[in-house]
Design a protein around this nucleic acid. Sequence first.
DNA 1: AATAAAGCCAACCGCGGTTCG
DNA 2: TCGAACCGCGGTTGGCTTTAT
Length: 229
Amino acid sequence: MEAISSLMLQEGWRKGPWTALEDRLLTEYVQQHGEGSWNSVAKLTGLRRSGKSCRLRWVNYLRPDLKRGKITPDEETVILQLHAMLGNRWSAIARCLPGRTDNEIKNYWRTHFKKARPSRRARAQLLHQYQLQQQEQRRQYLQSLHLLQQQQQLQLLQQQNQQLLMSQQQSPPEPDHQAVMATVSNDSLQDCSPASTAEHCTLPDDDDALLWDSLWRLVDGDGSSGGEY
DNA sequence: AATAAAGCCAACCGCGGTTCG
DNA sequence: TCGAACCGCGGTTGGCTTTAT
């Protein structure tokens, strides 16, 4: 029974901008009962708003200790410093700025300091640029790996040839020079060609967040990206 | 003057932590 | 101990206002 009436209430919740009457009802409720028990606001005042909505309205708009007006340069400095230390912990930042809400600070940060998301076209260009750079880095890495392997195999061959010569001086020669050469198979090198490996190294399309995070670091060139998107 | 783009902010949503019966 | 209710937080959205073309 309780569940049913609760469900009916939920279906009747009002959403969207608050009216002056709703503000007044909520303010009166808080004056009488104090903050908290937000879910009982609807029951006691007849306000058709969820507890969550009531709390948000009170905290962000109706609270008497709220400071109205623009963020001052001093406050901006505090926001910047605290954000550098705390990251996106808006409520923690807001506690250090009396009269300002987490929502207000969050909005201020996003409009003033957050990197603007580039257009679709610009993003595509950046992505292409990023992929080309990744490909080139892999190519250079594999090339150096290839050279290293060749040097090692050359050394091995030289050692084996020396051993062979020494043993030939001591005993009759055996026809396994070719067998030694065969141990140096090109197969072991084939997979290292840049063209073939580039395919295996392509980035997963769905790992967008990670990709963009890397991309911003690349574009910024400082690695200090917040990676917020 | 019209309209598209950007700025701004209030409000909503989803999730995780805490409290309580 | 467990599950439901409550609360708070950060991220996102929608719509109004302002600015640029």
